[in-house]
Design a protein around this nucleic acid. Sequence first.
RNA 1: GGCAGCGUAGCUCAGUGGUAGAGCAGGGGAAUCAUAAUCCCUUGGUCGGGGGUUCAAAUCCCUCCGCUGCUACCA
Length: 518
Amino acid sequence: MSGRPPFYITTPIYYVNDVPHIGHAYTTIACDVMARFKRLDGFDVKFLTGTDEHGQKVEKSAKAAGIDPQAFTDKVSQNFRDLTGLLNISNDDFIRTTEPRHVTSVQALWRTLVENGEIYLGSYAGWYSVRDEAYYGEDELRTDDQGRKFAPTGAECEWVEELSYFFRLSAWTDRLLAFYEANPSFILPPGKRNEVMSFVKGGLKDLSVSRTTFDWGIPVPGDEKHIMYVWLDALTNYITAIGYPETGEGTPYAQYWPGAMHMVGKDILRFHTVYWPAFLMAAGLQPPTRVFAHGWWTVEGEKMSKSLGNVVAPAELLEKYGLDQTRYFLMREIPFGNDGDFSRRAMVTRINSELANGYGNLAQRFLSIIQKNCGAVVPTPGPFTEADNALLDAARGLLATLRAELDVQAFHKALDALWVVVGDANRYIDEQAPWALKKTDPARMATVLYVLAEAVRRVAILTQPFMPGAMAKVLDLLAVPEDARDFAHLDQALVPGTPLPPPQGVFPRHVEEAEGAA
RNA sequence: GGCAGCGUAGCUCAGUGGUAGAGCAGGGGAAUCAUAAUCCCUUGGUCGGGGGUUCAAAUCCCUCCGCUGCUACCA
């Protein structure tokens, strides 16, 4: 227990049947930036990611691979665990829906819902596509000359009737709308909130929450022929990880819930903003605080797809462009929440123009003057001029700006604000021209270099959430102690006389190698 | 079809009533500490078309064209 305010952030649990791609990396990196920012800002952070491992598709894939589902998921889940290492993700936990703690949690939630009269046994009938794992409405289907029915996806459908448990979602329409009204920033960005609200306003039907057509899932307590609906299973991971069903005082649940923020792709927005709050409220629990739906990346202007063969593997990017560069690009290139395009050209432009030329070169130029002319120690400043204070004030103002931007997940704006100060610093060094002061006024030169070092120290501390590796290097170059790199130490200025190591490039320029038209 | 949104400089976008903006790209210049990086100046738009309200519209209203999202159990 600590007095620090709690902050709980989650990625979706990734479906193990997928191969990790840039989209997974994007979601996870965004969460990592939030988590690191909040930690540096003094919050007690819990950051969760993991894998979703149940369902008919997994069962089939396992069968196709000739192994049992558990062995199969053990194997593929590791792909996502590896991804967190690759991306330097600071998650505190990695949950798998096949873990005992999760089975316990989901079954407890189920029992509570049953006790509360929110679940009843009914029967579900409709046109079902095995391939799509989905039911379709009569009006959606196409009938061929032999009377066979086909889904819009082209998959053949069959009439299926099965016993199923239902969740009384219809009863929650008004209470959900009231919840959205009372919590305007529950769903971000605002456009998505409107979509969800208009969907709910259209009225909700009860939701089938169990299946009997396959086995790979969590059994319904007391009626084990039934497997729980995948979303009831999957969504519950967010409270499993904080110890549900233990919710009493002093538990992680009591500490972190309901102050949770779920980061999701726009495709799974409804499950998180309609079903999930309804499940929770029906169980007498509170909905989370924030669900943010981000957009999708295209690649060189085209939709990413297996058939096009243009799926971008995270490892490939990291190898080619570097980890922090990739993290920076993904957070900077498009307004968070919008769709955007990933292009090699844009990537290289940002790396060279903003990282290498803008930031890296700035550090290199004043650090090398210090190295050569100030005895390789933090210079001793004299009185500050108006120009000095202007730059320092700009750097001092960043914390408030970043807090406000990250409060609504505006990562691109946060980076933009940081780079405004980088630009200020580049103008400042040109205007002050310390290389000229070297001969005319060494004391003034020392002041200018000190001001630059201080400004860059602040910028570097605040940029850590986005590029932890590179910023650690910058802070090393400024000899900032490792325990003085959180936001509480922003006002702890550099100490004149502190020895500085020889400067090293932090962001190398990216030079395209000659290569084929790949 | 219904609901919502978008269409502003070559590209990506900001700007929601008061003489059109940023970054990148293009052109010219300065400087030389630095990763041939930086800084300054600059070319460029009848703000999708048309109509209306207003002293004044990219900004409000109507209409047309084009594009996008959502429209339930498709990870």
